[in-house]
Nucleic acid binder design. Structure first.
Lengths: 213, 213
DNA sequence: TTTTGTGAACGTGTTCACAGCG
DNA sequence: CGCTGTGAACACGTTCACAAAA
């Protein structure tokens, strides 16, 4: 088993979502082709992705929807729960806390931090905003979310690392430096807007290729 | 000049950000090596990316910070302004409207839409929430932001397309179908969390390679 | 016959290494 | 000499095509 590419993991998320939909529709089996067409990729890609983790299908039939979904659930680590802390009780932080969807996927927001004295102590959802420097290893945080202004982002990330988090999700428009043992993902809306701006600035010729079957 | 890869465009955003910082520090020149180390990539990558658009550097010296920044600004289409509409006046939509950073980068949020009668008519920032079906080509929207629950996302995207938007930024955890002429970008927090969950579930061996010089 | 699983072929993006200029 | 710009080499992810299995 070789190393798993980032793209493969992201597609697993999509497969998982599609399988939930398909299961809700009552389908018991699904072929790689059907899984692919919902996704907009090739069936070979689906099979390659899944083959990284084992042989889940039955030749001539396809994949058992429930079984495959549970397998992917396990692979993605969604069978257990993760303790999440959010740094920054501003708009993004508040939006994340208000969004209940994460709880369904195994992520429990157990703490919210901020440096502003005006925000510390205030209730936010079920939690009270805590002072940033009250974060410690005792909080046993698995994933730290950086939802602060860009200038504070690196300090907050350092604090998360010092508190022993194993993963960081960064919403601030700044590249963070973390030790290699800490998994880092970034959601950079500014970059997405700029990427759109570039696409819209191009002459209406070169479009991303969408291969038709 | 060949087609520009998505990765190149995203890195241009980063270069732009770094150049702003460097300019603020008073630097007038910067080498590809310095640009790269701030970014965590190789200097050859920087030069390759820039060479897609022209020869901006001077051999033996490096790149003029101000000049390169203006060039990238033009390439990314940040010299003009884009009219943005947000669909979904929930937490994400509100957070986007409250975030003033986009205005600095050429994005003007000119309308907010929602389907909920309770939200329509309410003020949100400088705007009043409008009924979703009041969106039309008359609004002359360049970029539509989908910040609705997943089940409404495709309908909203269709409405944006019908109203003539040229780009869509999707925050809903669902794959959208849009005509090839419409640029589509997605910010999928659910997927990012799942990607982190996967990384945290792996044994502490295989980490993403960070080549040291 | 249908559909999986997979080695081989292919295409694309990244890195190397050096010629070309300042 | 220092650094850019770029063809060539390389690495990696995607697609093809087919043997194997139900």
């Amino acid at each position: 088993m070789s190393r798993i590419s980032d793209s493969t993991v992201r597609r697993l998320s999509h497969y998982y979502r599609v399988l939930e939909e398909v299961a809700a529709e009552g389908q018991r089996l699904i072929s790689s082709h059907r899984l692919a067409e919902r996704e907009g990729i090739t069936s070979a890609q689906v099979r390659k992705d899944l083959s990284c983790f084992g042989s889940f299908g039955r030749r001539g039939l396809g994949y058992d929807v429930d079984h495959l979904r549970e397998q992917i659930r396990g692979i993605l680590g969604l069978s257990r729960r993760w303790r999440v802390a959010i740094a920054g009780a501003g708009h993004i932080g508040s939006a994340l806390i208000a969004y209940r969807g994460f709880g369904e996927q195994g992520f429990d927001v157990v703490a919210v931090f901020d440096t502003s004295p005006q925000r510390v102590g205030r209730p936010l959802g079920d939690l009270a905003v805590r002072a940033m420097d009250s974060l410690s290893a005792r909080d046993a945080i698995d994933v730290g979310v950086v939802a602060t202004p860009a200038r504070a982002a690196q300090d907050v990330a350092d604090a998360f690392v010092a508190a022993g988090v194993r993963g960081i999700l960064n919403f601030a428009p700044r590249k963070l430096r973390v030790p290699p043992a800490v998994a880092l993902r970034a959601v950079d809306m500014t970059m997405e807007f700029e990427s759109l701006s570039f696409a819209l600035s191009q002459p209406r010729s070169a479009r991303r290729p969408r291969s038709a079957p």
